[in-house]
Amino acid sequence: MTPFSYTRASDAADAVRRGGSGQSKYLGGGTNLVDLMRENIEQPITLVDVTGVSTGIEPVVGGGLLIGAGARNTAVAEHRLVRMSYPVLARAILSGASAQLRNMATIGGNLAQRTRCEYFYDDGGSRCNKRRPGQGCDAIDGINRGHAILGVSSACIATHPSDMCVALAALGASVHLHGLTGDRRLPLTEFHCLPADHPEIENVLEPGELITAVELGPLPVASRSTYRKVRDRSSLAFALVSVAAVLKVDGGIVRVVRLALGGVATRPWRASKAEMILLGQPATVEIFRAAAEAELSDAQPSKHNGFKIELAKRTMVAVLTELSTDRGDISHG
C-alpha cells in the first residue's frame, strides 16, 4: 500500500478544507476503499476520515427523511421511519454484504463505491478502461457472466454493485453535496454516469466535493414497497438481478409505480420505460410482462450474461405480482 497521511474531519467544511486536493480521498467505512488501496488501485496521498461527519437521520419538515452521508448502513436499515415508510430501502440495505460490513459501511461510501468487476481489480494482468483510460476492456471478450446488459458501452460493461442505490433510484432520492464552491443537490439518478467513452468518470463529484446527505421525499405509497435480490447464493453475494419496486393499485388499476433494477446495469437503473407502460393500466401479469419486455428491449448482452434478460423480466413480474396481491413488504429469503 502506498504511504498516506491520515486525518479526521470535524464537519463537512473541515473535510473539504482538508480533502480539497486531487490526491486526497474521503474515508467512510473503508469497506471498499481500503481494499482498493491494498490492491494499489486507489493510491491517495491523504485520507480524510469523514465517518464522524453528518451521521444523523432526521425527518424533513413537510415530509421525507434526510439521511446523513456518515450514517452507517445498519443505522439506516434499523431506523423506524425507514422500516415503516420506505421498506424497499431497509430491505435493499439488509440484502447487501454482511452484518459486519453493514455496521462499518456509510451511506456516502455506498454511493461512491466502485465496481467489483474482476478485470477492474486485476491490476497486474488485465486491461481496464476504468483503471487506465484508453487501455481497452478485457471483460467484453472475457468471462462476463456477472456483467451489465443495460447502459453498457464499447469501453465498459461493469455493473454498479450497490443494492441501496437501486432502492434510492426507485424512491427518487436526491443527493446533497458540499464542495469548495458551495452546496448543491441533484437527483440520485443523475449522480452516477453512464460509461460511454469515459468509464473512468463514474459520478459527477468535482475534485474534493463531499457527499453530505441523501434526501427522501415524502412518498406515502412507498410504505408498500419491496426489494428482491437474485444471486448465486442466498446471502453475502452481489446481485445477478435485483428489483426495487413501489406500487399502488386502486380498483385494479396501477396508480403509482416506481421501479429500479440492480445487477444488470452500469449504474442504478430507474426503469422508466416499464413505469410508463404500467401507469394507468390494469395490474395484470400480462401488463407486468409487457412492461418488463419494454424495459429490457435495449439490453445488450455479452457472451455469458444473456440469461440476465429473462431473469430480470421474470423478477420484475414476480415483484409486481407480489406487491399487487400481498400486503406489501413480505419475506422472500
Binding site: E78, A90, S235
Partner: peptide
C-alpha cells in the same frame, strides 16, 4: 436492538429468531 434481517418477514416486528434467521445473520 430489534434490527431486522433480509429474511425477517415483518420489518416492524421483533424477528422470530429461528435457524433461517441465524443463518442469514451469520452469513458474514
Amino acid at each position: 436492538r430489534g434490527i431486522p434481517s433480509y429474511v425477517t418477514a415483518d420489518l416492524l416486528a421483533a424477528a422470530a429468531v429461528d435457524r433461517n434467521e441465524l443463518r442469514e445473520r451469520m452469513s458474514g
